[in-house]
Amino acid sequence: MPATSPAIEDYLKTVYAHTEWQPDPITPKALADKLGVAPSSVTEMVKKMAANGLISHVPYGPLRLTDAGRARALSVVRRHRLIETWLVAEMGYAWDEVHDEAEVLEHSLSDRLLEAIDVRLGRPTRDPHGDAIPSASGEVASEPFVLLSEAPTAHVGRVIRISDRDPEVLRELERRGIRPGVEIVVTDAAGEPVTLQAAGEAGELARDVATAIWVTA
């Protein structure tokens, strides 16, 4: 299996994404769960990726990308997030509809077309969900953040990122006007639901919804 196969790209992207918003490295079991594959499949793929110099791994230990693996992962992440941004900006997709399309297109777009999309969009640095779009040279913008569900009462922060794992959550937040860039003031962090002001409007969010929102620290 070549080092640039779609399967390897999916693995690299998943390993990278796991530590993008929290510090703990991914375990083989967690990787299998995220990809929906058998643990034995992960074991075999990890061996191939290690042989290709893309990942470092000790038996029963967590998985970490090598420098080469991280560079390749960032290339795939860049493709995915630029495609999502393009689909929303120019193709009429809603932000809860783009993930699956990008999963397919990220493996097939040429570098030339991707560059043309990047230029046409004005070289965006964030996708519709607030995730950073890596530059062509592998640079990733970041700033201090906190999960909204963990923010204390009276915390004031701007929404940086909203997880795209649950389209229904995205649709609910769309209805509430909560998007990246919106300012949120936590008025009561201890209760269930969390009470807050978003863009000046008072409201409530179930705690499981609040766990999908990252705000500036």
Score class of each variant (00 low, 15 high):
Met1Lys: 07
Ala3His: 10
Ser5Leu: 09
Pro6Arg: 07
Pro6Gly: 05
Ala7Trp: 03
Tyr11Val: 04
Lys13Glu: 15
Thr14Tyr: 05
Ala17Gln: 11
His18Met: 04
Asp24Ala: 07
Lys29Cys: 06
Lys29Ile: 13
Lys29Ala: 13
Val37Arg: 15
Ala38Trp: 04
Ser40Asp: 10
Met45Ala: 10
Val46Leu: 15
His57Arg: 11
Arg64Asp: 01
Ala68Cys: 01
Gly69Val: 00
Arg70Cys: 00
Arg70Val: 02
Ala71Asn: 14
Leu74Gly: 01
Ile83Glu: 04
Thr85Val: 02
Thr85Phe: 01
Ala89Ser: 15
Met91Arg: 08
Gly92Val: 07
Tyr93Trp: 14
Val98Gln: 03
Glu101Tyr: 00
Leu105Pro: 11
Leu113Arg: 13
Leu114Ile: 09
Glu115Trp: 06
Asp118Val: 06
Arg120Ile: 07
Pro124Gly: 13
Pro124Asn: 14
Asp127Leu: 05
Pro128Ser: 01
His129Cys: 13
Pro134Thr: 15
Ser137Ile: 03
Val140Ile: 15
Ser142Glu: 10
Pro144Thr: 02
Leu147His: 04
Leu147Met: 11
Leu148Ile: 02
Ala151Ser: 13
Ala151His: 05
Ala154Lys: 10
Gly157Thr: 07
Val159Cys: 07
Ile160Gly: 00
Ile162Trp: 04
Ser163His: 03
Arg171Gly: 08
Glu172Trp: 11
Leu173Asn: 01
Leu173Met: 02
Arg175Pro: 02
Arg175Leu: 14
Ile178Lys: 09
Arg179Ala: 13
Val185Asp: 12
Asp188Ser: 10
Ala189His: 03
Gly191Val: 14
Gly191Asp: 08
Glu192Pro: 08
Pro193Trp: 05
Val194Leu: 15
Val194Asp: 08
Leu196Gln: 09
Gln197Val: 06
Gly200Pro: 02
Gly200Ala: 07
Glu201His: 14
Ala206Gly: 06
Ala212Glu: 15
Trp214Ile: 02
Thr216Phe: 13
Ala217Glu: 15
Ala217Lys: 08
